[in-house]
Design a protein around this nucleic acid. Structure first.
Lengths: 237, 237
DNA sequence: GTCGCGCGTGAACAATATGACCGCAACCGT
DNA sequence: ACGGTTGCGGTCATATTGTTCACGCGCGAC
């Protein structure tokens, strides 16, 4: 039983997205696409049917914006009905209240659209590890076992960065950008972090290319215009 | 509001334990003991009252074994009632099903009795970090922000020394770090202790990963930056 | 005695910041 | 308008360090 495939129900109203999730699932070992629901009520129905048929759903990939109910409402109704099915939220909604609510509603992960297959695979993989952690022990656990299980569930994502960029330097640059409301130039980053101009520019260019910071030229002074970079509060739609 | 104290309700039937939790809470900065309930129904009542009085509870320390209801039932009823209050389970029950159910019911942490004050403080501190993470941003977030928030609910995996590290060498490295005020590089450790660069780095890296030392790159010279490690005098609360 | 395991080592390989150098694109003086 | 000045953008070779791999040494088990 612990080694059986994880049965997944996709809840998503847009047909194209639903299809994409199903295809993604098919590529992952250990997961089985057990069905698709297009709205909240049919999701609840599918879950109940699967339950009474003796083939319960293990995991729900739930979109938050559904035609009839909000995804959080569906989750709450599931809990009220006594369903302990795990839920991963997949949504374009970036509202913080929703995230908070998701945690309270027992949602194990929160994926923000659009996401790459790599991100998807990583989150699902974490969930599989979590189940494995809890599946190996029989009945009893100690604190560190529980901690370990929680840890594998909520480990931070290591987004793949191209070769040549160091983790520490990147986060230093990002932190500096985040704590500055006004746009900063590459020379300011150079001075503040004690790194060379070339390095600063390399990281800033990377962030600009991936769309996480905004780049614009700064005119008014002699010499070639200097680029200035500003952290985007609303990431690329 | 994000800087306000976190109001905590203790749900515990044993008077002595309840008192202990309240005392522990009093010692922690940023938390306020907002009341105690001795069973599930009065807990639900207290939560509703606090809500309608405009002073909602932020966090519940919930025992799983209560005289009237199971702690999980209380959690589920809270969710059904639309309460988004966060819950930390405090229990002697080691049943795996309960742990699984706890995750699904939106329980953020799981403390197994008996526990020390240090463990208690650590878990509560993690929860405070989690709130802080979500409180700093205003409205919108990106995937890595959400990941970061989830990650702060994670335990700093207290691994029992992941094979390959010897007790003696580890304490030698730690001692050397402790007696040096300024950050040290791996090559300094190599020279001082007479061990190879690879070995020194392995131990320093382990200490950095577990969060007991601080690692930061040293820029300014050509070549790949050298990491420097410094003993943390104030272990982050 | 030898088999295997834990742990440290040296060397080859990969990663990554830097200084130097050149060219560009906007101001400025005539 | 037009060439000169200025200061930053882009590219390279180079210097160091981080990382990985296979090996060896010592010790306990069988």
């Amino acid at each position: 039983m612990p080694d059986a495939d994880i049965r997944v129900l996709v809840v998503e109203d847009e047909a194209i997205a639903a299809e994409a999730h199903a295809v993604y699932l098919g590529r992952l070992a250990g997961f089985v696409h057990a069905g698709t629901a297009r709205d909240g009520h049919s999701a609840l129905r599918s879950l109940a049917e699967a339950e009474s048929a003796g083939r319960p759903i293990d995991l729900v990939l739930m979109d938050m914006t559904l035609p009839d109910l909000h995804g959080l409402d569906v989750s709450r109704r599931m809990r009220s009905a006594g369903l302990m099915t795990d839920i991963i939220a997949i949504t374009a909604v970036r509202d913080l209240k929703i995230v908070r609510g998701a945690v309270a509603a027992g949602i194990v992960q929160y994926l923000i659209k659009p996401f790459t297959y790599a991100t998807f695979a990583q989150k699902l993989g974490q969930y599989r590890d979590f189940r494995l952690q809890l599946g190996t022990q029989s009945r009893v656990t100690n604190q560190s076992d529980v901690d370990l299980a929680f840890a594998s569930l909520r480990a931070p994502a290591e987004l793949p960065r191209p070769k040549g960029l160091a983790e520490g330097t990147l986060s230093a640059v990002v932190d500096f950008l985040k704590e500055h409301e006004s746009p900063v130039s590459s020379s300011e980053v150079t001075d503040a972090l004690g790194i060379s101009r070339v390095t600063a520019r390399r990281y800033l260019e990377y962030l600009a290319d991936t769309g996480t910071v905004l780049r614009s030229p700064r005119y008014g002074t002699p010499g070639r215009p200097e680029n200035e970079y500003s952290w985007m509060r609303i990431p690329r739609p």
